[in-house]
């Protein structure tokens, strides 16, 4: 928890009024993101949560400078971003490992670009391999690995460059449930135990409990076009338990926000929820009685005063 307290005033990254618009080949325009402003602060794990097709991955690509937004600006430490984010790394949904490079060659990719000395590269690669638990697989090609191991390589490659901002694009959605759960806890433990010097983790997911399990702050997007719906602070203390009541109620709350069609104006608190949940129950009645009521209603042109 100590991590979240290092907040400085200037956010690590900031998005201002981002609008993303694509021209489809058919000639129809598609607005993927609309008017999104948010900041990514030091010391937090930030989750962007939303249904598929809401533009969360696009948002991550805008943040890292992989794509330029149609409108709006991206700031890094208060300065407008040009080109690729200077100290970000990405863990990709489908791993994006180069199949013709070995595990260590894949991990060394970013280090080689940074013109690190070969000996130092070796040392750094060895260190992250140790951290993510890939010992013994250094000279293996990715296709010989299971999905979970592949994503470990993806994570190791990202950690190797010691990024300020670690981005993850649905990092566990390509894995089976148990492997995903396992890897998720491992990533969280790396963060909590300060084994890696990352300032912020920014990740994109459609899995509510994953967001609740990992994140300090959850940004919920709505789809078509992707708009910022609500930002939720998640203060459940670590380690979080998937079955605890506060965990479950948080998941329920977010689920409701996502499935409800109304856009809430402000952060929903549990008290407000209790108020809206009071609904008058229907009296017991048989089907015949209901049909009779409908017929009477029909005879009176749809309106009748029964009291």
């Amino acid at each position: 928890m100590a991590n979240n307290q290092i907040n400085t005033n200037i956010p690590i990254s900031e998005l201002r009024n981002i609008l993303m618009h694509f021209d489809l080949p058919s000639g129809v325009g598609l607005t993927v993101l609309e008017d999104i402003s948010m900041s990514v602060n030091s010391g937090e794990i930030l989750a962007v949560l939303g249904p598929s097709g809401c533009g969360k991955s696009t948002l991550m690509r805008v943040l890292t400078g992989l794509i330029k937004p149609t409108h709006g600006e991206v700031f890094v430490h208060g300065e407008a971003l040009k080109g690729i984010h200077p100290s970000a790394a990405i863990v990709f949904q489908n791993f994006a490992l180069y199949p013709w490079l070995t595990v260590s060659e894949n991990i060394a990719m970013g280090l080689e670009s940074a013109k690190v000395e070969p000996d130092l590269i070796k040392e750094k690669v060895g260190k992250v391999i140790d951290i993510v638990g890939l010992e013994g697989f250094e000279d293996v090609y990715p296709k010989e690995l299971s999905g979970g191991m592949k994503q470990r390589v993806g994570i190791a490659r990202a950690l190797a460059v010691q990024p300020e901002l670690l981005c993850m694009d649905e990092p566990f959605s390509g894995l089976d449930v148990l492997t995903a759960e396992n890897l998720r806890s491992e990533v969280l433990n790396l963060w909590l135990d300060h084994k890696v010097d990352i300032k912020t983790i920014f990740f994109v997911t459609h899995n509510i409990s994953e967001a609740v399990f990992l994140a300090n702050r959850i940004v919920v997007l709505s789809a078509n076009p992707g708009k910022l719906r609500v930002v939720i602070n998640n203060d459940i203390p670590f380690p979080r338990d998937y079955r605890s009541s506060e965990f479950l109620s948080m998941v329920d709350r977010i689920h409701e926000i996502i499935t409800s069609a109304i856009l809430p104006d402000e952060v929903i608190t549990p008290e407000m929820e209790k108020m809206t949940q009071r609904v008058e129950a229907l009296p017991n009645a048989t089907v015949g009685e209901i049909v009779g009521l409908l017929e009477i209603l029909d005879d009176h042109k749809g309106q009748i005063d029964i009291f």
């Binding site: 690509r61 890292t64 992989l66 690729i84 984010h85 970000a88 790394a89 990405i90 990709f92 949904q93 489908n94 791993f95 994006a96 180069y98 490079l101 990719m109 970013g110 080689e112 670009s113 940074a114 490659r157 460059v161």
Partner: peptide, 21 residues
């Protein structure tokens, strides 16, 4: 695949390394 290209960008492969790797 787009992800491989993005990985090359994020990990800053220069022209020659992108070509050969």
């Amino acid at each position: 695949p787009n992800e491989l290209r993005e990985a090359a960008k994020v990990y800053r492969l220069n022209w020659w390394r992108r070509f050969t790797k």
